[in-house]
Amino acid sequence: MSRTAISVGAVGVIGALLAIGALLPSWLLFLVTMAASHGVVSLGILLIMRGGLVSFGQGLFFAVGGYAVALTVNRWGATDALVLVGLGGAAAGLVGAITGPLLARYSGIFFGMLSLALSMVLYGILVKSTALGGSDGFNIPRPTILGWRLEGASGDYALYALAVVVTGVAAWLCAIYTRSVRGLVTLAIQANPLRVEYLGASVRGIMALNFALAAVLGGVGGALTVLALGHIEPTFAYWTQSGEFVFVAILAGPRSVSAIFAASLVLELVRSFSNLYFPNTWQLALGVFLLAVILFLPGGIGSLGQARIWRRPTKGRDLAALRAGEAAE
C-alpha cells in the first residue's frame, strides 16, 4: 500500500467516524470516545512491540499526560483542548525521552519489568501527594476549542470528534512510520538485533526513539481521556490500566495500525457489559481473554485473513507483500 493510499484511507475512516458519531446515542458516543482515547496509547505499545518488546507500564505516560493537562487547567486556567492535547503529548514525550535511552539497554523481560516498576513508582507518588488530590484525584472543568465552550450534547460530540481526529491522525502517522526505513529496521530488530548492529544501525538508538514516540502517544491518550472524563486519579498509572493497553495491543496484533481501534472498541464494549453483569471479575475476564488470544490468534485481529497473503505473496514485490499483512486499513 502506498503512502497515498494510506492517506486516502485515513481521511476516509476519520470522515466516516465523524459522520457516524452524529448518529450515535450518547452512551455509545462516550464509549467510542474512550476507545479512541485509549487506543492511541496502545498504538504506542504497538510501535514498541514491532521491535520485539512489550511495555507493561504505558500507564506511566498516560498518567503524565493526563496530570499535565489537568494541572494546567486547574492552576493556570488554560482551557483550549487542542493546546492541552499537545501539552499532554509533550510532557509524556519529555519523560519518554529521558527514560527511553535508559530502557533501550534492556531486552525482553528486563524491559517489561522495568517499565512496570517505573509506572508503579509514579502511582506510589501520586497516591501520596495530597497536592494532587491523593488517591481521589480531582476534577477539571470542560475545555474549550478555539474559544468555544464544550457543553451539553454538542460538547460531547466535539470531544468525540477531537478524540477521533487526533487518534486517526496518530494512526495515519504510525502507518507511514512503520513503512519507513526505521519501521523496517525495527521489524528486523525483533528478529535479529545482532545482525542489525552488524549492518551499521544502532539498535538502542532506534528503540529509544520508538519508546519516546510511544510515550508521546501515551501522553496524548491521557490528555484526551482526562478532557472527556473531566476527572483524573492515580489509577491512570496503575498496573491494571497498563494491562488494558497491553491487552488491546495484543488483541490488535503487531501488523495492523487500524486494528487497534477495533480492539480498543471491543475492550470498551466488553468492559461495559462486564460492569453490568460481572462487576467483580473484570480483570479475570481480561486475563482469560488475553490467554485465548495468545493461544488461538497469535497475530491478533490484524492478522485475520492476512496470514497467508503475508507469507506467500501472490504479486511480485515482496515488500508490498510484507506490507499486505500490515495493511488492514
Binding site: N280, T281, L284
Partner: peptide
Amino acid sequence: VVLLLVTYALFLILED
C-alpha cells in the same frame, strides 16, 4: 516475551 504476557494474564486472573 510471550511467556511474560502469559504470566501477566495469570496475574490478572489470580487478582480477581
